[in-house]
Design a protein around this nucleic acid. Structure first.
Lengths: 123, 123, 123, 123
DNA sequence: GTGGTCTAGACCACC
DNA sequence: GTGGTCTAGACCACA
């Protein structure tokens, strides 16, 4: 896995987990990969992996069955969706508009990129 | 100046400088505030301020006349615009689309927020 | 380590690093000494040492594994060689010829010094 | 005049003066340009120009007739030549050889560049 | 353990 | 006045 510089690895792992849950790849009540598996596949220190699990456990997105592994909670997918939507609309979107304004990029420009993006990813 | 936690202050100063250049507030070949002025006005250590100057100097956005101060290079405004546009289009925009996709937010939804944003900031 | 006056210490550290890489002492992908080790062994403030690391990191000669340390990039040795060669041939060599010309020193004179230098350092 | 970064401007002016004397452009006992002329033509602070004059005056390479201007001393050209030769042979040349060694550049390589240089500058 | 950031303050060179 | 370098030392995030 490629990590972005300047952003903590454990945060990037959290995001990776959220993506899997949002995309339906990991469904409610399903078991997710073990700490060890993640640590190995991502070439990451187990301590770093554990931090990601702990954060999502604190937010009740995943839970732990001792000796068995981690699972998505039944409300997990909904919680993630809410969290992400909220963050997206109150933080990212306004920031985006501000940047567009500063860079003189019109909404139509974005629209063009969007159409292109859709074409490429649905084809 | 108010700084965002968990982002280095010197990066925020760099962004502040870029904003001033992009907005036309600081024009090509014009002198910009001295290190000490910035340090005082932002209530920051001069060393921290210098880091911002050094970064932009390395990118040839500003240059130094010894004993006189820092100036915007003649290509400075263009370089900043290019840098920012590039980063925006190759990083933020794809990220945006991916998030929209995951969160099931349509382009029309975004459009509504955009119209609202414009109405608020131009009124 | 003995530092030359009137040249920044951090530049001299950069040169020291480059020398180690050029001489094959530090090879591609190998870990190099930590910031603290260098700071202690060179009797220099860690901040001063960090500047050297940062400069070479910006030039992609070394890179950082978070929490682990700094490593020579795979292209590091080549980049250093290119950088140094370029600087040598475009700056030092023409400067040399110009000085020789001004001082009325012939190429044969230099040759004698060179032979002497080689004799002393290979003997 | 274009100045090199990282080297004091007054030193570069001193070098410029020495070059003029060595090349025979400014001969013994001849008047050299006034401080003001140099300051204007080089777009430099007069104080900075004065430093260069003072340094060469201290070394008895130039002298001042009050109200008239600066002149090259009768021994000026010889002194400059001695100074430069000494510095060249004891500092620059050994440094050059060391760099050649590190960069795996042979003396024959240098010879080729030299022949090329001569051909270009005598043609 | 690793590096990164920041402050406080000194000292210097240069213009 | 300008910026540049360096030290000492604290505190933090990360692995």
């Amino acid at each position: 896995m490629d990590f972005i510089r300047n952003q903590p690895i454990y945060i990037q792992i959290v995001d990776y987990f959220c993506d899997n849950i949002l995309s339906g790849n990991w469904k409610a009540n399903e078991k997710i990969p073990s700490v060890r598996e993640i640590a190995v596949s991502m070439e990451v220190n187990p301590n770093t992996a554990i931090r990601a699990y702990t954060i999502l456990q604190d937010k009740e997105v995943i839970f732990n069955k001792r000796g068995v592994g981690y699972f998505v909670t039944s409300l997990g997918p909904i919680k993630v969706l809410d969290m992400k939507r909220d963050e997206f609309l109150t933080t990212e979107v306004p920031q985006l508009f501000k940047t567009m304004n500063l860079l003189q990029i019109s909404f139509d420009d974005i629209k063009k990129y969007y159409d292109k993006y859709i074409a490429e990813n649905n084809a």
